[in-house]
Amino acid sequence: MTDLEVLILAGGLSHERDVSVRSGRRVADALRSVGVSAHVHDVDGELLGYIEQTRPDVVWPILHGSTGEDGSVRDVLDLVGVPYVGTDAAGSRLSWSKPVAKTLLAQAGARTPRFTTLPQTLFRELGTRGVLEKALEVLGLPLVVKPASGGSALGVTVVREAMALPQAMVACFAYGDEALIEQHVSGTELAVSVIDLGDGPQALPSVEIVTEGAYDYDARYNPGRSEYFVPGRLDEARERAAGELAVLAHRVLGLRHLSRTDMIVDDDGVPWLLDINVAPGMTETSLFPQAAAASGYGAGELYAALVTQAAAG
Rank of each mutant, 00 (worst) to 15 (best):
Q202T: 15
G281R: 03
V185C: 09
G81H: 00
A219D: 02
A237S: 14
P271R: 01
T112V: 13
E161A: 15
A101K: 06
E212K: 11
H184V: 10
G187K: 09
V194P: 01
A148Q: 01
E133H: 13
L234T: 07
M169P: 12
G281Y: 08
V73F: 03
D196A: 05
D275L: 01
A171G: 15
G127L: 03
T308R: 15
Y221H: 15
S37K: 15
G200T: 09
S226Y: 06
L79W: 14
Y217N: 03
S149F: 04
A214S: 12
T67N: 11
V265D: 09
I8W: 05
D57K: 07
V207K: 06
K98V: 00
Y297D: 10
L13H: 13
L190H: 11
E208H: 12
L9I: 10
G269E: 05
Q120K: 15
L273Y: 06
R124L: 14
E52N: 15
T116F: 08
A89C: 05
T188G: 06
D88W: 10
L77M: 04
V19F: 00
A164M: 11
M163F: 11
K134I: 12
L248E: 08
D18K: 02
D70G: 08
G313C: 10
F123Y: 12
R225T: 10
R160F: 02
Y50H: 15
T285C: 03
Q309A: 13
A304W: 09
T285N: 01
V34G: 02
V247P: 07
D3T: 14
S37G: 11
T67E: 09
T2V: 13
A291R: 00
V82R: 07
L104G: 01
A148T: 10
A312S: 15
L4R: 15
V210Y: 04
A249V: 03
M169N: 06
V278D: 05
P280W: 00
S206N: 01
